[in-house]
Design a binder for these strands. Structure first.
Lengths: 179, 179
DNA sequence: CTACAATCGGAACGGTGGCCCCGCTTCAAC
DNA sequence: GTTGAAGCGGGGCCACCGTTCCGATTGTAG
C-alpha cells in the first residue's frame, strides 16, 4: 500500500517545482500560467503534471503549507497570551502576509479545501476570543472571512504601507463588543 | 458632427443587448461569455460588437447606469437627512444591491472608469460624514473600498439573509469615531 | 418599387492556457 | 556494465472566448 520511494532526481524536481510555484503564486496568484512555473523550475510542463495531478492541486499544496505555518504561529500565541490578543495578532499577521504575497487572497476567495482550512483556523481563534469577551458574539467565521477578503485582495502591492494598519483598525474596532 | 439617427431595428437591438447584458452580468458578472449575452438578446455576436466596441465597454455601460442610480439615490438622502445617515444608508444600499446582483463586485474590484465613479461617489459621502463627525477621520476612500470589497464579493447568492446585516454592523461600528 | 446603404448573423480566426502523449534519458538494482 | 523501469521534456491537442469578416438581409429615402 505504501508508495515506493521516489527516485533521487524525481524528489529533487518535485522540490524545485514547489519552490518555483511558491514564488510564482506569491507574485501573481493563481493567474500565473503553469508553463511559467515549469520554466522557473527549469523543467517541462509534463514534469509538473507527473508530481501534481492538476494546477489546483499544486496551488493547494503550496498554500496549505503556508496556512499551516500561520495556524501554528497562532496556536503558539494562544497558549501564551490571552485569547483576544491571539485573535487580533493573527489578523495582523494575515494582513502582513497578504501585503507581501498575492496568493493568500486567491486562497480565501476560492472555495475548496484551502479555504476550509483557513475557515477552521479562524473559527478556533474567533471562538476563544468570543468566549473571553474580546470579540462581539454575533459574528460568525463566515462573516469574518468576508471582512478579510477585501483586506487581502486590496493590500498586495499597494505603495501605501499604512493601508493595512488603517483597514485593520476599522475591523478591530468593529469586531470588539458594542459599547 | 452629429451622428445620424440609428435605424429602427438597430435601436431595438441595442436595447435588447443592453437588457440581456444587465441580466447576464447580474447573474454571472464579467465571467459570462459574450456569446451568451448575444444569445439571450436573440442576436449574433457581431451585432453586439456593432453597438459596443468591446466587452468591457458593454460592461461599463451597464454598470455605470446602475451606479448613477445609486449615487442619485444617495444624493437625495444627503440633502434630506444628516450626512452620517446618508453615508451609512448608502452602505446598506450597496450591500443589498451586492446581494442581489453579482456585477457590482466585479465593478468595485477591476480598476477602470467604473471603479473611479464609485470611488468619487463614496468619497463625497464619506467626506461629508467625516465633517459631521459621524465617521472616524483617519479612513480614506481607498480604505473604504477595500472594506466593502469583501462584503460585495461574498454576499451574492448566499442563502443566509442575515449575512449582510452582520457584516455591515461590524463595518459601521468600526467606521464610527473611536471612543 | 427600387436601390443603396445600414445592419445583421454566425462562421471563422487568433490567442491563451490547462493538460496529455510518447520517444528519449537517467537512475539504480543486480 | 547491463537492463528494465521510472522519470523527463516539450510539442501538441483541445476547449474557451474575445473579436472580426463578409455574404445575406432589411429598413428607408426618393
Amino acid at each position: 500500500m505504501a508508495d515506493p520511494p521516489l527516485r533521487a532526481d524525481a524528489r529533487r524536481n518535485r522540490e524545485r517545482v514547489l519552490a518555483a510555484a511558491r514564488d510564482a503564486f506569491a507574485e501573481s496568484g493563481m493567474a500565473v500560467p503553469l508553463d511559467e512555473i515549469a520554466a522557473r523550475a527549469g523543467v517541462g510542463p509534463g514534469t509538473v503534471y507527473r508530481h501534481f495531478p492538476t494546477k489546483d492541486a499544486l496551488f493547494t499544496a503550496v498554500i496549505t503549507a503556508r496556512i499551516e505555518d500561520l495556524v501554528a504561529d497562532a496556536r503558539a500565541r494562544t497558549s501564551a497570551d490571552d485569547a483576544g490578543a491571539a485573535f487580533f495578532g493573527f489578523l495582523a499577521r494575515l494582513g502582513a502576509e497578504g501585503a507581501a504575497k498575492r496568493d493568500l487572497s486567491d486562497a480565501i476567495a476560492v472555495p475548496g479545501p484551502v479555504r476550509d482550512d483557513l475557515h477552521a483556523a479562524l473559527g478556533a481563534l474567533l471562538g476563544r476570543a468570543q468566549e473571553a469577551g474580546a470579540v462581539r458574539a454575533d459574528v460568525s467565521t463566515t462573516d469574518l472571512i468576508a471582512l478579510l477578503k477585501g483586506l487581502l485582495t486590496t493590500v498586495h502591492g499597494s505603495a501605501d504601507a499604512t493601508l493595512v494598519g488603517r483597514i485593520l483598525a476599522v475591523l478591530v474596532d468593529g469586531l470588539r463588543p458594542p459599547r
